[in-house]
Amino acid sequence: MSLGEGSGRPSIADDKAQWLSEKANWIRLSAMSMTNHAKLGHTGGDLSSADILATLYLGQILNVDPNKPLLQERDRFVMSKGHCSGAFYSTLAARGFFPIEQLKTFMEPLSMLNGHPDRNKLPGVEANTGPLGHGLPIAVGMALAARMRNEAWRVFVLVGDGELQEGSNWEAAMCAQQYSLDNLIVIVDRNRIQQGDFTESTIRMEPLMDRWTAFGFAVQQLDGHDHLALHQAFSSVPLEKGKPSCFIATTIKGKGVSFAENKPAWHHGVPTEEQLEIAQRELGVEATW
């Protein structure tokens, strides 16, 4: 598959799920190439979130126009786990927000592609994230704005699972419940690993579904690497009228690359040239750039 065919519109079916899967693998390899190039990055989370990002942006879930990135009634997507900028930038480039060539400047001096996203530099970025626990409050504010303006756009926010240890998320969750924000969709990248260790060995996140349910969300757990399931789920929001939706996407940190899967050390592991070649073979996509 060649690069940058991002804006095609699949009618979702098995072959289209296959198309999204290839796109997601391209995002994976692109992110790893960027990390290899910059010698910095967050490989594990890039790989766990790639299928979710591909489905949202390339599966035509998000109503966004790369040529008019600031249209008032666009859907908003907040990448709360801003450290996974390799996957996020690759997705935005694949969707056409900026040239794929630009990915080569990742973290270079004066690049628009900062280690963590900056909305004032890069089209398509809605929020400056990086410190954890910022995205959900921002997304709640966006959903409130849509409500105040009586506009139909939705707000999707991708949060990490370890990120949910930040208390600000739960302040925001209570607010989303109070204001019945059914235009808000939280997606948890449940890869079970945070920077230093497994989440359950650090600060337990379970019972995660019960927690979100208790905070007033309509919750659904799903396979975060199953494009058909993801597409179907994201197309059926709100899960319940009058309630914010939460998808707990079960994922594998380092997904798709054998040496990185489920290994805490790959949270911010940097692949060597040799590892990049192995990754390319396993992902089954062409060299990215």
């Binding site: 929020a127 409050p137 504010g141 208390g167 600000s168």
Partner: peptide, 28 residues
Amino acid sequence: PLRFINVGIAEQNMVGVGNGLANGGMVP
């Protein structure tokens, strides 16, 4: 009343909500 939000005792969320409202076209 429709342009009035009480986030409760939650200042971190309050400021984030401010950012989101501004992004969504309001002046909070």
